[in-house]
Amino acid sequence: MIRYTLKCDRDHVFDAWFHSADAFEKLRKSRMTSCAVCGSPEVDKTLMAPRVQASRSREIAPLPPEAAATAPGADGKSFSLSEPDSPLAQAIARLRAEVEASSDYVGTDFATEARAMHLGDAPTRAIHGEARLDEARALAEEGVPILPLPFSNRTKSN
C-alpha cells in the first residue's frame, strides 16, 4: 500500500491510499479518483515527504510541541476526514443527504430511467444516479431536465 497526498483542481488537499503507484495512475487516467472534499475527478499527486521508519523496534517520535499545537485535532475537537470542515463542504454534505433521502438511486441506469420518465413510459419520480458525459449531453439535447450534482457516488470514493 502507498499513501499519496493529492490535490484537486480546486486546491483541496487530502491523503489517499492506493495498492501501488501503477494502481493510482490507472485510476487517475480512468477518472475514478475524486477529491475527498468536492468530488472533482481532476486529482493529481502533490509534493510529499516519504515516511521511513528506521527499525520496527523503534517507536515513532512524538510531534514537537510547535507542530503538535497546529496538528489536526490539537484544539481538543476530534478530527475526521469523513466530516466536512469548510462551509462549502458542509453545504454539499447537506445537499447529498437531502438528495439521498428524497430520491431513488438508479445507478448507471440514470439516462434510461430519466428518458423513460420524460417520454411518459415510466412514472415520474425523483431519481439520482450516474451518466456518462455523452449520455448527459444527449438527455439535455432531448430536453430531459437533468442537473449535475456536486458530489460523486459514495461507492466510488477513494
Rank of each mutant, 00 (worst) to 15 (best):
S55R: 15
E25H: 11
T46I: 02
G39M: 04
I127V: 09
R58Y: 04
E113A: 13
G129R: 01
T155D: 11
L147E: 05
H19I: 15
D134C: 01
E130V: 11
D15R: 15
R56Y: 13
K156S: 13
R115F: 01
R94S: 00
H19Q: 11
A61V: 10
E142Y: 01
I127E: 01
A91D: 03
A67R: 13
I2T: 14
S20N: 12
A136F: 00
K7T: 14
A131T: 04
D11S: 14
G143Y: 02
I146L: 03
A49R: 13
L88G: 13
E98K: 06
D121F: 00
G129F: 02
R51E: 03
L88T: 11
D121T: 01
L81K: 07
T112A: 08
P62Q: 03
E100T: 09
R10V: 00
K29F: 05
R31P: 07
S57P: 00
T124I: 03
H118G: 03
A101K: 10
A126D: 13
D11Q: 15
Q90R: 15
H19W: 08
R132F: 10
T124M: 05
A97R: 14
H128V: 02
E59G: 14
T155G: 13
P148Q: 09
S55W: 10
P148M: 05
A138F: 01
